[in-house]
Simulated scan of single mutants.
Amino acid sequence: MTDLLDEIVEAHGGLARWNELETVSARLLQGGAVWGLKGRQGVLDDVRVTAGLHEERVSHHPFGAPGRRSAFTPERVAIETLEGEVLEALEHPRDSFAGHTLETPWTTLQLAYFVGTSMWTYLTQPFSFTLPGFETAELEPWQENGEEWRRLRVIWPEHLATHERVQTVYVGGDGLIRRQDYDVEIMGGSSGAHHFSGYTQVHGISLPTEHRILPRTPDGQVLAEPLLVSIDLSEISFA
Rank of each mutant, 00 (worst) to 15 (best):
V184P: 01
T104Y: 13
A98L: 09
I155D: 10
Y182R: 01
G173W: 03
T162F: 06
A161W: 04
Q201E: 14
Y113V: 01
Q143V: 13
P208R: 00
E144G: 05
V171Q: 00
P208N: 04
L102D: 07
E158Q: 06
S191F: 00
H195E: 10
W120K: 14
G189W: 04
R179W: 02
L176Y: 01
T104I: 13
I213N: 00
V166A: 10
Q143D: 08
P215R: 04
G175M: 00
D181E: 09
R216F: 01
T136D: 12
E140H: 12
S206T: 06
Q110R: 14
G172H: 07
H203A: 13
H159P: 04
L207N: 01
T217R: 07
W149K: 08
L123R: 10
L102F: 12
Y199G: 05
E140V: 11
E144W: 09
W149D: 05
V202R: 09
F134S: 11
R150N: 04
W156D: 06
W149A: 03
E144T: 05
L131W: 15
T200R: 09
L176T: 02
T107A: 11
L109Y: 07
E148T: 15
L123P: 07
D181K: 11
W120A: 08
L214T: 07
S206G: 00
E135D: 13
A161P: 00
F129P: 08
P105H: 12
H194C: 02
G175R: 06
D181Q: 05
F114I: 08
T217M: 01
T108M: 13
R151T: 06
E144L: 14
L111N: 15
V184R: 05
F134K: 03
R150M: 06
Y170L: 12
R212G: 01
T124W: 13
Q201G: 04
R151G: 09
Y199K: 08
Q201F: 00
H211I: 09
T217P: 00
V184T: 05
Q110P: 13
E103H: 13
I186R: 04
T209L: 03
N145S: 13
W120M: 13
E164Q: 13
H159R: 05
E135L: 14
L176P: 02
T121W: 13
T136N: 14
Y113M: 08
S197A: 08
L207P: 00
T121Y: 15
W156H: 11
R151E: 07
G192S: 03
Y122H: 15
T200W: 07
P208I: 04
Q143A: 13
E140N: 11
E103N: 12
E140I: 08
G188M: 06
P132M: 10
L109D: 10
R165W: 02
V166I: 01
R178I: 05
F114H: 15
T136S: 14
R150V: 02
M119N: 15
T200S: 05
S128L: 15
M187K: 04
Q110A: 14
T107P: 12
I205T: 02
T108V: 14
P105L: 11
P215V: 05
G188K: 01
P157F: 04
T108Q: 15
G173A: 09
I155C: 06
Y170E: 02
F114C: 14
G99Y: 15
G116P: 10
R216L: 01
T107R: 14
G198M: 06
F114Y: 15
L139S: 11
V171H: 06
D183P: 00
S191Y: 00
M187E: 02
E185W: 06
Q125K: 07
Y113G: 03
T121F: 13
